[in-house]
Computed example of a mutant assay.
Amino acid sequence: MNIHRLISLASILGFAFLANVPLGYLREESKKFSLRWFVLIHISIPFIILLRISGGFDWKIIPLTLGCAIAGQLLGGFLKRRSAR
């Protein structure tokens, strides 16, 4: 894998993580399983897919992008709970 491809992958993973931090923060104050809660969890996914496809990556990086998105959601939720103290 060349350096440009690695930078592209790192950018996609960074976006997946960083986009989900504020979404996780907002999700934390939503009623569980409500429409808002569902949207806040899934709204970044089409953008991540678009970046993955436009970057020329196949389905094999989906677990990495999903893991970064979940980590961002969890961090955002943690930050919201911590600020509520």
Rank of each mutant, 00 (worst) to 15 (best):
P63N: 08
F38H: 13
F17E: 08
S54L: 14
I53E: 14
H42N: 15
A16N: 08
A19V: 12
I7G: 11
I53C: 05
L13Y: 03
L35D: 02
P63W: 02
E28S: 11
R5F: 04
S34C: 12
E28W: 11
V39I: 15
L23E: 04
A16S: 15
R27F: 01
R81S: 05
F33H: 12
I7W: 13
F33K: 08
L50M: 11
I70S: 00
L40F: 12
Q73K: 01
G14C: 11
I45P: 04
F38R: 10
L74Q: 04
A69T: 04
A84L: 15
D58N: 15
W37P: 09
F47P: 01
P46M: 05
E28V: 03
R36V: 15
I49R: 07
I48F: 06
W59E: 15
E29T: 13
R36T: 14
S11Q: 07
H4S: 14
L26F: 15
F78E: 05
L64I: 02
L13W: 10
L79E: 06
R27M: 15
F57H: 09
I45L: 07
R5N: 04
L35Q: 07
R82I: 00
F57N: 05
S11C: 12
R81E: 04
E29M: 15
L13G: 08
W59C: 06
I3V: 14
K31A: 12
V39P: 01
I70M: 04
L23F: 01
H42Q: 11
M1L: 14
T65N: 02
A19K: 06
R27V: 01
R82G: 00
F47Q: 00
G77K: 02
G72N: 01
G24E: 09
L74F: 07
G77N: 01
H42I: 09
I43N: 04
G77Q: 10
I41L: 15
F47N: 02
L35C: 03
I62E: 02
L51P: 10
S11W: 07
G76R: 04
S54R: 12
L26V: 12
H4R: 14
Q73P: 00
G72V: 02
H42P: 00
G67A: 10
S8T: 14
A71E: 04
I45Y: 12
A16Y: 01
R27C: 02
W59D: 13
I70D: 00
L35W: 13
I3C: 05
R5G: 02
I48W: 06
